[in-house]
Write a protein that binds this DNA or RNA. Sequence first.
DNA 1: CAACAAAGTAGGCGACGCCCACATCCTGGC
DNA 2: GCCAGGATGTGGGCGTCGCCTACTTTGTTG
Lengths: 201, 201
Amino acid sequence: MHTRRRYHHGDLRAALLTRAEETLREKGPAALSLRELARDLGVSHAAPSRHFKDKQALLDALALVGFGRLAEAMAAAQRGTGESFAERLRAGARAYVDFATADAELLDLMYSIKHTPEASEELSAAAQRWTEEMMSLIVDAQRRGEVREGSPERVGIEVFSTLHGYATLAASDSLPPDVCTQDLDELVAYILRGCAPEKSA
Amino acid sequence: MHTRRRYHHGDLRAALLTRAEETLREKGPAALSLRELARDLGVSHAAPSRHFKDKQALLDALALVGFGRLAEAMAAAQRGTGESFAERLRAGARAYVDFATADAELLDLMYSIKHTPEASEELSAAAQRWTEEMMSLIVDAQRRGEVREGSPERVGIEVFSTLHGYATLAASDSLPPDVCTQDLDELVAYILRGCAPEKSA
DNA sequence: CAACAAAGTAGGCGACGCCCACATCCTGGC
DNA sequence: GCCAGGATGTGGGCGTCGCCTACTTTGTTG
C-alpha cells in the first residue's frame, strides 16, 4: 500500500496530468503553475521537470489527453446511434457540445496549441485523426445522397464551424441562458438544411 | 515639441493600450507584461498601475477597444452594401472574418473576458450592443421574408455560431491552407440555406 | 555488486504582478 | 500670486513563477 512518503512518487507524470486537469477545470488556466502542482502532490518544485521539459510540454500533454477524451466521446456517440447522417450528426453534435461545456478550458487549450509550429507530432497526429473522422462522416453522407456534392473538406468545414462556434459560445457563457439542450436539435436541423442536397428542379 | 523626457508622459493610458495591442498582435498574449510595456514607453514599472489597477484591467480595456474596432468595421461593411439579407450577411461575414484573422489574439481576448462575472459594465454593454445589431439584421431579414420565421435569437445564434466558428478556426490556422477568400462565399451560401424560409409546399 | 540512468531535492536567477512610501507636476480656489 | 491637494510617475521591496544547475537517492542491469 506504499501510500506513505516515498522518495519516488510512483507515477508522478500521470499524477501531474490528472491534477493539472482538475486545476484547469476548477480554477482556470491562469491558476496552473508547475510549482503549485508540485506542492499539491507533495513533491519538490523541480520534480515536474523530470517529466515535462517545460510548462508548454505539460500543456501539450494535457491537450493530447483532451484529444483522446474527445475522440473517445465522439466514437462512443457514433456507436450508439443510427446510420443516417441526421442521426450521426445529432449524436456527434451532442457529444461535442457536452465536451465543450464540461471541459471548456481544456478545449481552449487544445485549439490554442494546435497551430503552434513546434507542437509535437503526436499532437498534430491526434488533431489530424480527429478531422479525418469528421471527413469520413461527410463522405459517407454524400455517398448516401444525404449531403450535397462538392469538396467534402469544404462541407466539413462548414459543418464543423457551426458546431465549433456553437460549442465555444456555449462554453464561454456567451449564449443567452434559456438557450439549452433542446436548441441543439434546432441547430442540427439548421446544419442539415445548410448541407442538404440540391433539390432537382 | 516636448519630445524629451518629461516627468509626465502626456497620455500614458492611450500609449499603453496602443503598445499593448501591438505586442499582443506581434508576440501573443503570453508576452504581454506590464513591466515590459512600461520599459518600452520609457516609464517606471509602477506607472501603468496609475491607469490600470491591475493587469486584468488593462486586458479589459484592450477588449473594449477591440469591441469598438469590430463594431466600427461591421458598421462600415453594412454601409457599403445592399439591402438584401444575402448582401448584408456577406458583407458582415467578410468583415468579421477579416477582423478575426487580422486580430486573432484580440478576438480571443474579447471572448475570454466577456463571461467573467466582474467584467466592467462598459464591457458587457459593448458586447450587448454588438449582439443587438446582429439581432436587428435577422429581424429585418425575417420581415423581408428572406429568413425563416421563429425566434430571432435562435436564428441569430445559429448564424453567428457558424460565422464565429469559421473565423476562430481561420484565425488559429486550423483550416487547410487552400481554403481561402472565395470559400467565404460558399460559407455564406451555406448559412443562407440554413436559415432560408421554408418553401411553401 | 558496481556502474549507471532515472527520479527527486535544494538553491539560485531573473522576470513578473502587486504594494508601498515618496517625488514631481498640475490645477483650482483663495 | 500662491499654495493645497490630487494626479501622475519613481524606486524599492515582497512573494511567486519558470527555468537552470549541482547534488542525492533509488532502481536496474550487466
